[in-house]
């Protein structure tokens, strides 16, 4: 019985610690570069985004997450021939108020993957693949299904619809 209690306490603590870690990374999730390449086909954003990871694959996944993160929270910078894109959730508190939702959304293999597709030919290569301390930094071209992402967040009550209130 005591052992069971201990085990439960331990697992609770470790789960809590894990959550804390995740939360921490959520909060400091700002350190990445993203640029708009060109005006994407209807409903999409065509961007180049960077990610960091222990391996090239992990860095590529991180870059994909970053692209979706940028569309939701940061917005995309403009370029010479493409205007900037505002974030889907401009309210800075969105992440906090819907933290559980985004934990699930950005989980490994989570729903976010449905809204991003890599358009880099093959693997990240050349100057877009850099060995840095602790791993790799890669730059990939991605297409974010911005409109679909927006609809999804609107449907889930995280983002407001333009027509809400009318």
């Amino acid at each position: 019985m005591i052992a069971l209690t201990l085990l439960m306490t331990f697992s609770a603590v470790s789960a809590n610690a894990q959550n804390k870690d995740r939360r921490k990374s959520f909060k400091s999730w700002d350190n990445y570069e993203i640029t708009t390449e060109k005006v994407g086909v209807d409903g999409t954003k065509f961007v180049k985004v960077w990610g960091f990871g222990k391996t090239v694959d992990a860095a590529t996944m991180a870059a994909k997450e970053n692209a979706v993160h940028a569309c939701i929270f940061r917005g995309l910078p403009g370029s010479a021939t493409a205007m900037s894109t505002p974030p889907i959730c401009p309210n800075p508190n969105t992440l906090e108020t819907h933290e559980d939702y985004f934990q699930t959304f950005f989980a490994a293999g989570g729903p976010y993957l449905a809204y991003v597709s890599m358009t880099t030919d093959g693997v990240p290569s050349g100057t877009d693949r850099r060995k840095v301390k602790g791993g790799y930094k890669v730059g990939i071209y991605v297409q974010v299904m911005y409109d679909n992402l927006k609809r999804k967040l609107e449907a889930d009550g995280v983002a407001r619809k333009l027509s809400s209130g009318f």
Partner: peptide
């Protein structure tokens, strides 16, 4: 804003403009 500079049909450039400013 401006569209891309290209020798493509006007509709492409015009639609690019609309998509460019749409979300903003």
């Amino acid at each position: 804003g401006v569209s891309s500079a290209a020798n493509v049909p006007m509709t492409s450039l015009l639609e690019e403009c609309v998509l460019s400013f749409k979300d903003n």
